[in-house]
Amino acid sequence: MLIFSVFKTLTDQTVTVELKNDLCITGVLKSVDQFLNIRLDNIKVSDEGRHPHMMAVKNCFIRGSVVRYVQLPADHVDTQLLEDATRREAQNQIKQR
């Protein structure tokens, strides 16, 4: 849930999604769901020479399960807030047990 919220705060920011098939796609994050499926607009594949497959594709839906990394815009991530939220969530899990 925490990570889902982080992604929601990053909508309309430019991110780079690296997939488990080594494709790297940069685009504007349009939406995300609880499975961390991602919609990107205005996409650009890194190394189009090697991966020309998506030259005519402008926006896409990426299945969360095939994502390896997402490079985030560091200036839009409040790391202190993240750490506090992570501790709070970990604490809640302990209480639930």
Partner: peptide
Amino acid sequence: ICLIGEVDEEADQALDLTTIRAE
């Protein structure tokens, strides 16, 4: 499915697939 992308049909028709070489 890994990925679903919307194809820009104009751009797609402009591509000459016979000249594209890629792994």
